[in-house]
């Protein structure tokens, strides 16, 4: 069992949980993820690691309540425990000195971006961060990421904070001003697609972190397969980060909708109880 030792409500349906999982905490590197299962009847879901503390033996996850499992997870509190918590899984981010890097985070994708921003900064990169959300209340880890960045921008769909519009608009302005050596983008699939399309024009190396549906997370089921440059890769063992210019985003969007109907049914059942 893996006890929840801290909980924060970041916005109406975005929650932070700090989980005691010493083995995972000891090994976790930026870019990696965990698989959790709440209880014996639960589903296994992957979540990218938002932070970890090897001394404390804790791992932080931040999630948007979208389906049955994340909603159930959101109800749990300090003192509750998770049945399973395995990781760290996947390959870590390629953290090294690139020069000037732009880190783009959208929505709940800001959470896994945070350890990468910190690590890139530590390597001596000039780090420019752009965070995007629908509205300012949905922005995560704003001050934390700001503190680890050399330049910091915000974009909101409704203009409630920062630029009114998309993160890609801000990225375009930065590309116009700076020599950008690498872009790291984590967020909704459509955001990663738009960012990749933009940077492709300028031949800027771009990494994206994919979050497809998984079951085991160890390379066994192939449910998380993604098409990279026409080749099938497993996000769980070959990723989750891939060259943003080579990802077939449309196929990923399609595959992530595979169980939408069942998810609705599961949520309805849970609501009836």
């Amino acid at each position: 069992m893996y006890p929840i030792v801290d909980k924060k409500v970041l916005s109406e349906n975005v929650k932070l949980l700090k989980i005691k999982a010493p083995l995972v905490a000891k090994k976790a590197l930026p870019g990696q993820f965990i698989i959790l299962r709440i209880d014996e009847k639960g589903e296994r879901i992957p979540l990218t690691i938002a932070d970890s503390d090897p001394k404390e033996g804790t791992v932080t996850i931040i999630f948007l309540e979208v389906g049955k499992t994340t909603k159930q997870l959101g109800i749990l509190d300090v003192g509750d425990s998770l049945e399973n918590f395995a990781g760290p899984l996947g390959l870590p981010s390629e953290v090294k000195k690139y020069g000037t890097v732009v880190c783009v985070g959208g929505g709940v994708g800001i959470a896994p971006l945070y350890p990468i921003v910190k690590a890139l900064k530590k390597e001596g990169n000039f780090v420019i961060s752009i965070l995007g959300a629908k509205t300012k209340d949905l922005l995560l880890l704003e001050s934390e990421i700001h503190a680890s960045s050399d330049e910091f921008y915000i974009a909101t769909d409704d203009g409630s904070k920062g630029h009114k519009g998309f993160v890609s608009d801000v990225l375009q302005q930065i590309i116009d001003k700076h020599q950008v050596d690498m872009v790291m983008a984590i967020g909704p699939i459509i955001m990663m697609k738009v960012v990749s399309n933009l940077t492709k024009k300028y031949h800027i190396k771009t990494l994206v972190s994919l979050n497809p549906i998984m079951v085991d997370g160890t390379g066994m089921c192939g449910g998380c397969r993604v098409s990279i440059d026409g080749k099938t890769k497993f996000a769980c063992v070959d990723g989750p980060e891939f060259d943003g210019h080579k990802v077939d985003y449309d196929n990923l969007m399609l595959r992530n909708r595979r169980f939408v109907h069942a998810e609705g049914e599961a949520c309805k059942m849970a609501g009836d109880q």
Partner: peptide
């Protein structure tokens, strides 16, 4: 994951 007992168990299969 016992999808044959969905939705009693959370994992679906279609």
């Amino acid at each position: 994951m016992k999808a044959y007992r969905f939705p009693e168990y959370d994992t679906p299969v279609k």
